[in-house]
Amino acid sequence: MVDAWLYIGLFLLVGIVIPGMAIMISWLVAPRKPNPVKQSPYECGVETVGESRVQFKAQYYIFTLVFLVFDVETVFLFPWAVALGKLPLFVALEGIVFILILVAGLVYAWRKGMLEWV
């Protein structure tokens, strides 16, 4: 088991080296002639107006909050799913109750209008 994780570590190193090498090689051989026009933000040829880091919708933030709750709860389902075959009936049903609580949470968020993209 530990071997498998060691292998993943090794593979991670390889995975980092490959894009790193690609960037290095092109850094060595590609031409570099920067000028202010090239380095300006690309906005289809029109000159940039104002800040580039503009305000964006708060809706993104709300979706992230809802996501956080549901994602953690999804991961909680994984160990239960692995063990379901060996669990006594009562514990198996508890997992199903947990799914129903998730559904209730989703219905609540829906009714509160958190899932509307306005």
């Binding site: 991670l12 995975g15 980092i16 490959i18 894009p19 790193g20 960037i23 090689i25 092109s26 850094w27 051989v29 590609a30 031409p31 570099r32 002639k33 920067p34 202010p36 090239k38 380095q39 300006s40 933000p41 690309y42 580039s52």
Partner: peptide, 27 residues
């Protein structure tokens, strides 16, 4: 072709994150 292309970095970009982002996506 892509290896020999000039790479442009916007003047006000965050240089470190700008280089790190493609690596973080590929790995």
């Amino acid at each position: 072709k892509l290896i020999f292309k000039e790479e442009l970095t916007p003047a006000e970009a965050d240089k470190v994150l700008f280089t790190l982002a493609p690596v973080v996506t590929v790995v």
